[in-house]
């Protein structure tokens, strides 16, 4: 690590003792824990006198995002003003016509609606359910390692296996319908795989199923940071499990919840595989369960009939939509905090 240079060690007399420590017991102990390091040194005021330090630390991430994200995407933005073809060759500048075509295309709006709907339904559930699951497996119990690992398998199962399994569950004669019929809850099979709305809902179920384990570990890591004594204090005050969940756990993992919200939001707007698995390859009957990435694939990527320029315009729209919603969500949660 080249980072050794950065520490502003050993200020002249930073005088830890001189400051009247407000010191609730644990911070004093923390101080002791920190002491094995080099001599006590400079404090926050001297932070980043070397202005380039933060940039140095973030440089690899910036380079990666810029070179392998922003730069190729700028290319896409350029393409969106042309009539380029997926296989290259001469392209003409066509101004905004790709964008005007997009705004007048019913299929584009249908795909946008589906993508938005996906986000609206999936995001809140995906923020909450894995948290509940993490709370359930947080405690060390005999066999808990087995349960944690088992809950994680959907994340790593190959998509072929997942596709087959879910079709097997959701078919008209599949497991779900059979059970519901046996329980006399339904008389005719629920058309999970042939109704566009139900395909969308089933795909959301699939997304949640795959995401549960994935985000569970995010929360597990975060729960480790919720100070245990807060739980103890709350319990002492007579708060039940539900109240403690909302008043101690949730605020404690707030940052992670925001992160999961942003990630699942981005993911939902880009969902493709799940719809493809359940309604392939048209995107449900009549293509009515198509999402934006599905639409991009249909109009932009095909080597024979695709129009890379138009596909790029839709990609730009998807990007703007995603960024806009993320910033909006950011602002909303900020306001909530203050």
């Amino acid at each position: 690590m080249a980072t050794q240079t950065q520490k502003p060690v050993a200020g002249p007399d930073a005088a830890s003792g001189a400051v009247p420590a407000p010191a609730p017991g644990r911070t004093r102990r923390l101080g002791r824990a920190l002491r094995p390091g080099p001599a006590p040194g400079a404090n926050g005021a001297a932070l980043y006198r070397r202005w380039w330090l933060p940039w140095l630390w973030t440089l690899p991430a910036i380079v990666c995002a810029a070179a392998f994200g922003v730069f190729p995407f700028l290319n896409t933005v350029v393409l969106s003003f042309t009539d380029a073809k997926p296989l290259g060759g001469a392209a003409n500048f066509v101004g905004l016509s790709n964008y005007t075509r997009m705004l007048g295309d019913d299929d584009f709006w249908l795909a946008t609606r589906n993508s938005l709907l996906y986000a609206v339904i999936v995001v809140p559930l995906m923020v909450l359910l894995p948290l509940l699951l993490a709370v359930l497996v947080e405690k060390r119990l005999p066999g808990i390692g087995f349960f944690r690992s088992a809950f994680y398998t959907p994340v790593i199962a190959s998509s072929v296996v997942v596709g087959l399994s879910w079709q097997w569950l959701l078919k008209d004669e599949g497991l779900v319908n059979t059970w519901l019929e046996k329980a006399h809850l339904i008389r005719d099979a629920i058309p999970f795989l042939s109704d566009p709305w139900l395909i969308l809902l089933s795909a959301m179920g699939l997304t949640l199923w795959k995401g549960l384990g994935w985000y569970m570990i995010f929360y597990l890591a975060a729960l480790g940071n919720v100070p245990r004594d807060l739980h103890e204090a709350a319990a002492m005050d007579g708060a039940g499990p539900v109240r403690r969940f909302w008043h101690v756990t949730v605020p404690g993992v707030r940052q992670t919840m925001l992160l999961v919200g942003v990630l699942t939001g981005i993911g939902s707007l880009r969902v493709f595989t799940e719809i493809y698995m359940l309604g392939s390859p048209t995107g449900g009957p009549g293509g009515q369960a198509r999402t934006l990435p599905f639409y991009i694939r249909d109009v932009g990527l095909d080597p024979l009939s695709g129009n890379a320029g138009y596909g790029a315009a839709v990609s730009v729209a998807l990007f703007v939509l995603t960024l806009g919603l993320t910033l909006l969500a950011q602002r909303l949660t900020k306001g909530d905090e203050e």
Binding site: V19, T27, P40, Q255
Partner: peptide, 22 residues
């Protein structure tokens, strides 16, 4: 997110105890 979750008061008191940033 993980670093943000570290309570500020702990860092503050570490600072008061004279711990440098590194």
């Amino acid at each position: 997110a993980a670093f943000l979750a570290v309570p500020r008061e702990i860092e503050d008191s570490a600072m008061l105890d004279g711990a440098g940033e590194w």
